[in-house]
Amino acid sequence: MKRTIPWIITIVTGFVLVIAEFVPPWGKMREDVLIYFQIISVFAFFLGGGSLLKINLQKVFSKRTDWEYALVTVVGFFVMLALGLFKLGNPEMATAGYAADLNANGSWFKNLFDAVKAPLSASMYSLLAFFIASASYRAFRAKNSDATVLLVSAFIILMGQTFVGVVATGWMPDWVSFFKVENLSLWLLAKANLAGQRAILIGIALGIVSMSLRVILGIERTHLSGGDE
């Protein structure tokens, strides 16, 4: 029962969604299934959030290495949670109640987002600019034909997407305008890059279709393994 029922649930749910593509009256059932999907995914996130909280609280109470940072995480979590759940300072609360827009300008939740989450998120990702520069300097070498093609392609794109390309090949006469970097980079993106991306896309699609078939036919059961029998 512990594995058979979920196995049946997988098969039935999968079949409903596939058949709904061919039988329009089943469209309503498909939509219901997908609404369930939306609701369950929220609980899955709560599970993850709960786990994060559990690990950090354990770290704080057992005073393990770097417990101070875990405490900062927990405090940050609860402050943001309280501001959001109770919609503190939200100007729409008076009219819309708890249905008010979370991101209404002036709400403390939005203010904390602007002052803390937004800059931290943007700065974290912007660090990659530095690491890309350093890694390119250290590792980007034309060691063989494959690496050379990659290097040339990257250079054409880097030049073509900025004004450098226009300056570098602006002197070329019109009859060879195809070789102007800005045109070459567009061609590279729209043709050669397209071909490679398409091959990857088709490959992935075929892989997903076969994997989905295995799941729907009940052959693939790894998601039912693990934990208590």
């Binding site: 594995r3 029922i5 979920p6 997988t10 098969i11 039935v12 596939v18 997903i208 989905s212 934990g227």
Partner: peptide
Amino acid sequence: RWPLAFIVGATAGLYMM
């Protein structure tokens, strides 16, 4: 496992087509 099975089945059905 029940909701997980539901998510996996729905994802497979959705992705396949």
